[in-house]
Design a protein around this nucleic acid. Structure first.
Lengths: 147, 147
DNA sequence: ATTACATGTAATCAATATAGTTACAAGTGT
DNA sequence: ACACTTGTAACTATATTGATTACATGTAAT
């Protein structure tokens, strides 16, 4: 029915969490893809974005990725920005070229843009208050409860 | 670069604001389309959604739409829900079928879904705190400043 | 150096949403 | 009847997503 924010974001969170759980092993793109259940090439693309953002360490030819920061120092907002799912101030698209001869057409963009931006920032603030550490701990808790 | 929330939302706000400014005239879909700068059929489609949500009154064969509620009783969240740009709890898409044999794959969805939902609700809360009256007043203020 | 294997990345594809457009049926009032 | 409007369905062009294939590049071990 509508287009939502790319799952690159949730996959990014998945990858970082799994790097922690498998920190004593080798997390190749194939290994990660097996857990996410997708293609290794897609994982490598996302790994490249996470690397560019300084969240992980990964090198050509060398199998496996590692977290580049402590768990508590990576927020979901960091991941969200890293995987480039939404641009600043552009979560909402605003119709362009409204009629400048109409009072509404002339001013609507300047009026609603800051409001929509505020809404987007409110969303991002929530993501900034959750760390990968929180996610990892929650996964552990859920796992214990199931066993 | 990415897909943002449909401009149906901003167009919906535009339409409702213009219905107020032109409340003494006849706001046909053609008139509205002239201000938004798009096609009357597209406007009628959005008018149908606003009508279904009880925000406006419009009847087949009779030219013009009217606001069905007072300006201060229509929030941007009402419009956002009316034009159906985002479904509840589905602003973020989460990758499906993660590997249940992996601790992360098994639990990631249940862990992040409530977080993402909280973020979405934070965004929607901002929209719920702004009314069409606020938008109309801001447009008026901007217009005065320009003259 | 050759081999084996992993990462990096470009290209392609099917599925789907958006925004725009055309066309026309159905409703209303003169 | 006629003119005009709303309500909708259908179609198009464009763009993103997610998946996939292919291959160049980089690394390490033998």
């Amino acid at each position: 029915m509508f287009m939502s924010i790319s799952s690159r974001f949730s996959v990014g969170i998945h990858i970082l969490s799994l790097l922690e759980f498998n920190k004593d092993g080798v997390s190749s793109s194939e290994y990660l893809a097996g857990s996410v259940n997708t293609n290794p090439a897609l994982i490598r693309k996302i790994l490249g974005m996470l690397k560019k953002a300084g969240l992980i360490e990964v090198r050509p030819g060398i199998a496996g990725s590692k977290l580049a920061r402590s768990l508590s120092d990576i927020t979901l907002l960091d991941v969200y920005k890293a995987v480039d799912v939404v641009q600043d101030n552009e979560l909402f698209s605003v119709h362009d070229n409204p009629n400048p001869k109409c009072i509404v057409g002339k001013n609507i963009q300047d009026t609603i843009t800051p409001i929509l931006s505020t809404a987007q920032i409110a969303l991002e603030k929530v993501l900034g208050n959750v760390t990968i550490e929180d996610v990892v701990k929650d996964i552990e808790e859920k796992e214990e409860r199931h066993s």
